[in-house]
Design a protein around this nucleic acid. Sequence first.
DNA 1: TCAAATAGTACCAATTTGGTACTATTAGCT
DNA 2: AGCTAATAGTACCAAATTGGTACTATTTGA
Lengths: 153, 153
Amino acid sequence: MIRMSKEADYGILLLAHFSHQQQGRKHSAREVAQDNGLPLPMVRKVLKILAREGLLISHRGARGGYSLVRLGQRITVAEIIKAVEGPLAMTECVEAPGECRLESTCQLKTAWQRINDTVLQALGRMTLSDLTDPPPGEGQPFGGSDSGLVRIQ
Amino acid sequence: MIRMSKEADYGILLLAHFSHQQQGRKHSAREVAQDNGLPLPMVRKVLKILAREGLLISHRGARGGYSLVRLGQRITVAEIIKAVEGPLAMTECVEAPGECRLESTCQLKTAWQRINDTVLQALGRMTLSDLTDPPPGEGQPFGGSDSGLVRIQ
DNA sequence: TCAAATAGTACCAATTTGGTACTATTAGCT
DNA sequence: AGCTAATAGTACCAAATTGGTACTATTTGA
């Protein structure tokens, strides 16, 4: 099934939590876990990853915690997924060119790449602040404010 | 990881094979498996599913086989994935509203739905014939044509 | 120096996935 | 009529992945 892992799911959820609060504020893992009703060990794990990947700044020691590295409107869903799960690769051949046994006969290699890019672009247009403060109106699934894209017809 | 299952992967590959050949032609599982270098039992399994879901017409009995239900340019990648894996649901709450324990506190429910719709639309714009006969030019990943979106900066 | 926090790593049970096997049914061909 | 080649349906299994936990080391404010 095409489904986000729970880790990525939680990652987005937690970062949205950070983004929704006052900018730059520090939150401990314990606090975040409680606010979101998630198991603490799992929250710890995900926050560690997000810090290691540079989306959160970690503050060690007593009264430490994590804070967002930049404004929520400048962090995309695609970035978060990449941080937690690694580069988006809908198929094997996208992730590791040359390792798929079928690559010689498969006529769809460039097609897979385009499918992947299509999904990636879609996710790259959604920012954290879009998630918590939904853009008003238009039933359209998405269209991003500062994504550099406009609807023309 | 966000990855297509092999079943869906094969489903798209096999249908592309059908689409690329003369329209309406019949192919047996054995033939398709050989042409694509895939294990026969797996091909059988996937073709059965595609027939059950109405994307292929099955012809039973000796000299039977499968044929495409309609032209490749009228079958989308989204349809195929749905046939093989069920409705696209990037998160649990999209698939089964009300079952997620966090649903009461989660502020992202509508956001998940939009993420899902965004990906679904992207996949719904790619047809089988797009895969085998790539639209010429523009490095753009996809769907320039009827997506109504252009990059402006 | 203590307590509260993150960093890193290893581990495990449960689920999912990729693939196979087997039986039943259908239908063309001689 | 009967054989053969095909699909239909279902059950099964091993291996990989996932969701989650545990434990130790390190850091730092009070």
